[in-house]
Amino acid sequence: MNIFRLTGDLSHLAAIIILLLKIWKTRSCAGISGKSQILFALVFTSRYLDLLTSFISLYNTTMKVIYIGCAYATVYLIYAKFKATYDGNHDTFRVEFLVVPVGGLAFLVNHDFSPLEILWTFSIYLESVAILPQLFMISKTGEAETITTHYLFFLGLYRALYLINWIWRFYFEGFFDMIAIVAGVVQTILYCDFFYLYVTKGEGRSQLSIPT
């Protein structure tokens, strides 16, 4: 464990908690893409099945349980409890165009052709594009609540910190995982446009307006 990975995990945890609290406190999921949240729940489910098979550390297990729990709680709030506030008309990204190619790629490019490894690879590839429905929805509505932009900022920051973590681990441990690194680079690049807007327009505006 290094400081970059730890702050990355904490940034990820912050994002997940921010979103869950935003929906719970405002009792509304307006502006939130339920599709992205379903994809994230799928990412955590397919990646953390090793919870059942191996124990790495208390930290590792605790964080995985929290991630999975919050992901499903968020999906539940969006599609069940506060369904009336779900903006389905703007959450129209065709997620099958993400899941099918990612599923195929996981079978073609992986470290080991075992079920757990294929699922892990699938979760890595899926995570890199899981935010697209959310970014697409914001581009359609042309705006995002400030709290949603903070959610996206921490979510994007976490994988950027993981990239530094992988540079650190390659340099000090000779460890690198090309699949995770390439997917992580793609994932972080997808946020660049948002990061620019977040930094340049974050201040002084109540709503982040993305030029459609």
């Binding site: 990975r5 995990d9 990820h12 090793d50 191996s54 790495i56 550390s57 590792n60 964080m63 995985k64 991630y67 470290h111 080991d112 490894e117 892990w120 993981y162 973590n165 441990e173 460890f175 690198f176 995982d177 090309m178 995770a180």
Partner: peptide
């Protein structure tokens, strides 16, 4: 070996 350890990451 790369993938013996990558499962320690979240």
């Amino acid at each position: 070996e790369t993938d013996s350890k990558h499962k320690d990451e979240l």
